[in-house]
Simulated scan of single mutants.
Amino acid sequence: MRRAVLSVLLSLALPLGAWAQTTVEAGGVKFDTTTEVAGQKLLLNGAGVRYRAIFKVYSVGFYLKAKADTPDGVIKQEGAKRVMLKMLRDVDGKELGKAFTDGMRKNAVADERAKTINGIFKFGEIFNDMKRANSGSTIGVDWIPGTGAQVVVDGKAVGEPIKEIEFYNALLRIWLGDQPADEDLKELLLGKEKRHSGRQR
């Protein structure tokens, strides 16, 4: 009895932070609720699963300095950012790269389009060289102020940083644009509950 009472008292004495959620699950993948990019602490804004028809393709999470629940709030926010994907199935590298570049072009903003061309080309080349994105592999794209967008595959930097912020904005619009990859996923990445029952192709 004494041990039980002591256990309860000790648990009540723990700081509030000890009870805070430290991970969020999406498609069987756990995303840390905080991370660090270029010395800046970032918060998990939202996470979800990208489906193609009925198949899970990857889980993705967005990290920002401060949470935002609108596309403009995410895209226009200053500071470091991170897009983190974890593959849930094997996908041909060229096919994945084409899906990303098509999504960027489809959602491009007219006055930024010219400044995205260089970055979209370099990004596509990275996936062409990758050959295959295997299930379980991680693909991150960090926005580092003053440096650019750095692609990181399984913890290793790949390629040179892409300097144009317009490229990174276009990348975010794959999931947050007017024609997003998946409407449900868009809501989840904005930290909201999904509203739609259908799946985007």
Results as ranks from 00 to 15, higher is better:
residue 134 N to H: 11
residue 93 G to T: 07
residue 114 A to R: 04
residue 88 L to N: 09
residue 103 G to E: 13
residue 120 I to Y: 03
residue 138 T to Q: 12
residue 97 G to D: 06
residue 128 N to A: 09
residue 127 F to K: 12
residue 133 A to C: 13
residue 128 N to E: 14
residue 122 K to P: 01
residue 93 G to R: 07
residue 81 K to N: 08
residue 119 G to S: 07
residue 117 I to C: 10
residue 85 L to E: 09
residue 108 A to H: 07
residue 102 D to I: 05
residue 107 N to I: 01
residue 83 V to E: 11
residue 125 E to S: 11
residue 121 F to M: 15
residue 125 E to C: 08
residue 105 R to Q: 15
residue 101 T to N: 10
residue 128 N to I: 13
residue 136 G to Y: 03
residue 115 K to M: 06
residue 88 L to C: 01
residue 85 L to F: 11
residue 96 L to C: 05
residue 132 R to A: 08
residue 98 K to M: 12
residue 132 R to D: 12
residue 102 D to F: 00
residue 91 V to G: 03
residue 112 E to H: 04
residue 106 K to G: 06
residue 116 T to A: 08
residue 137 S to L: 04
residue 128 N to P: 02
residue 125 E to R: 09
residue 129 D to V: 05
residue 101 T to Q: 11
residue 103 G to Y: 05
residue 104 M to I: 10
residue 113 R to D: 14
residue 126 I to D: 10
residue 122 K to W: 07
residue 89 R to D: 12
residue 131 K to R: 13
residue 100 F to G: 10
residue 102 D to P: 03
residue 124 G to C: 12
residue 130 M to W: 08
residue 123 F to M: 12
residue 104 M to D: 05
residue 92 D to Y: 01
residue 106 K to M: 10
residue 130 M to L: 15
residue 95 E to V: 14
residue 105 R to V: 08
residue 85 L to A: 10
residue 93 G to A: 00
residue 134 N to F: 06
residue 96 L to G: 01
residue 133 A to E: 15
residue 92 D to V: 03
residue 112 E to Q: 08
residue 126 I to T: 04
residue 130 M to V: 14
residue 79 G to P: 01
residue 83 V to G: 00
residue 95 E to Q: 11
residue 112 E to R: 10
residue 95 E to G: 05
residue 120 I to E: 14
residue 95 E to C: 04
residue 85 L to C: 14
residue 131 K to F: 00
residue 134 N to M: 07
residue 107 N to E: 07
residue 106 K to R: 12
residue 121 F to Q: 15
residue 117 I to D: 04
residue 130 M to P: 02
residue 112 E to N: 02
residue 89 R to I: 04
residue 80 A to L: 05
residue 131 K to T: 12
residue 95 E to I: 11
